[in-house]
Design a protein around this nucleic acid. Sequence first.
DNA 1: CTGAAAGCGCTAACAA
DNA 2: TTGTTAGCGCTTTCAG
Lengths: 336, 336
Amino acid sequence: MTIYDISKKAGVSIATVSRVLNGSENVRPSTRKKVMDVIDKYDYTPNAFARGMGLHSLKTIGILCADSSDLFLAKAVYFLEQELQANGYESLLCCTGYNPDIKKNYLNLILSKKVDSIILVGSHFIGFNEDENQYIKDVSTQVPIMLLNASFDHPNVYSTLCDDYGTMFEAATEMIQSGITDILYLYDSKSYSGLKKLHGFCDAMKEYNIPGFEKLIHFYDGNIEHLNEVADFVARIATKGTSFHGIMTSDDSLAIGSIKYAQKKGIRIPEELSVMGYNNSMLTNCCTPELTSVDNRLETLTHQLVQTLLGVLAGEEMPKKSIFSGKIIKRGTTLF
Amino acid sequence: MTIYDISKKAGVSIATVSRVLNGSENVRPSTRKKVMDVIDKYDYTPNAFARGMGLHSLKTIGILCADSSDLFLAKAVYFLEQELQANGYESLLCCTGYNPDIKKNYLNLILSKKVDSIILVGSHFIGFNEDENQYIKDVSTQVPIMLLNASFDHPNVYSTLCDDYGTMFEAATEMIQSGITDILYLYDSKSYSGLKKLHGFCDAMKEYNIPGFEKLIHFYDGNIEHLNEVADFVARIATKGTSFHGIMTSDDSLAIGSIKYAQKKGIRIPEELSVMGYNNSMLTNCCTPELTSVDNRLETLTHQLVQTLLGVLAGEEMPKKSIFSGKIIKRGTTLF
DNA sequence: CTGAAAGCGCTAACAA
DNA sequence: TTGTTAGCGCTTTCAG
């Protein structure tokens, strides 16, 4: 069924059908009805490709994320889709995995679908030297690029993020003030936001002149979904003689793994060990006691991102960077 | 940058550029190189829409799921994307929510993008009367429809699923044989697979002539991510005087909520109460003791689905229905 | 208010 | 091996 079929059946020209389809004012109501009836009768949907060949917007936003099964990313994607849909935009999701080359390919691929903008979800898309980010610069000449929880300073690139540095700084400060200074810091990602968190932690430790805190910083290289492996990882660190009475992590999963470690060893939480997660995911209340965690206001972030995006697409001047503070959600695994 | 620009700069016709682009054999290597150099130099990507206007496949599969932040669905989508990508297909994801009308609209929308097939993830897309499924029949005339964890008998519709009925029957049988007959059954979805599980449970109870088991079947209407509310829900049931020594659920979240209930009440698991989840998600080892759950072999299902799909697209005769058995993963919340 | 006709960028016959 | 050309289905001037 094409616009030609419809025009023939309705006894009008394709231009008129096109006008009806696009809600043009310049159609006599009776003509409009005649056309609409045919359209409804045959359940006709215009071909998006032929449509896309024209110049204008297809009202579609490309969303790229590394892994849609990651709890945090999945939620982010979910909120973005909802928000975009509420504003009349469709979204097109691609999961790129963590390989940089593949990421770049996907970016071009999604661009070729004539999206109005591309949202990069998570900070895995930002590298640490100019070269790595060239591909973003290239694409930004064509459509606005929106970064969720990452930051990159470049024309036509807009960042919306949680201040992971400051929030982690604050969280660490709170733990230190509760009397715990030997804090194990576990992280699983060296992405932009992963390192921000790490620096926030380090700076808080430095602020309080805690000696040798660097030795308690450990990078976990495995799959964070395998909680028992995380527990073993913590056990191995403990076995090496390092003692700690607090654990802070870059992700809730690592914290849950830490709790499992404590339970296996009969260490009481929070009396003997304080644990704090990050992301405030649904995992926080799966365990006992429930996990204190940092909420990075994901829903606020996604909302703001879409608002900024809509503004940019409407040609308004919008903030290049929107930063929110996270907040600590106190539950049962910490003393404060 | 269009194919015309490239052809001009390379000093060939657009047909030759097109051939190079599409990997045709009939191009002299030197010509190919000449064209490729120009393409690379200008970082040219062909316009997918103009391309899509042709008749042939765009090597794109549409994936529809109700909610991409649901643990089970997110994993399914993830596996599907990986599998499709490995076979040279792109995927286009839409999250429809649970509203039937919106689902239908999305189906048409995704179809208009000239996808080669549509995968419906989860059984929420199948209704229980003919009318509700008319929209699937309609679309199935245009492209093959693949169902993941749902079943619908219709030409050009292929189902790949876990035998939730049989698996739940088996699981319930196992619990009964471990000596527990007063089993609380919690479920949160009345979808195709949700009801299959329920029936499997009921039939096992009937098989063993357990009287009054129906009174212990409860539908949970809230958000299953809110584990504490699930716990309260179970507590309310217990307060009403119904006693039970086993809990089986249609989803791990409900089981975790049940464990929270037990912990709050000081009920020991599994000594005083056996709990069994479903889906074998990452939640199963967040809690203590770890949750016995049913693995529905999601990765196997997605793999099989994509294999079937590839066969169908290649014009081969493929099974209309592929059914796998789930398996019980025994952990610490049950006696057996 | 409506219709005719010129593209949009590409693919795929068909010719050469 | 390469070029020419007719569509693909739609939007959008431009006439009427």
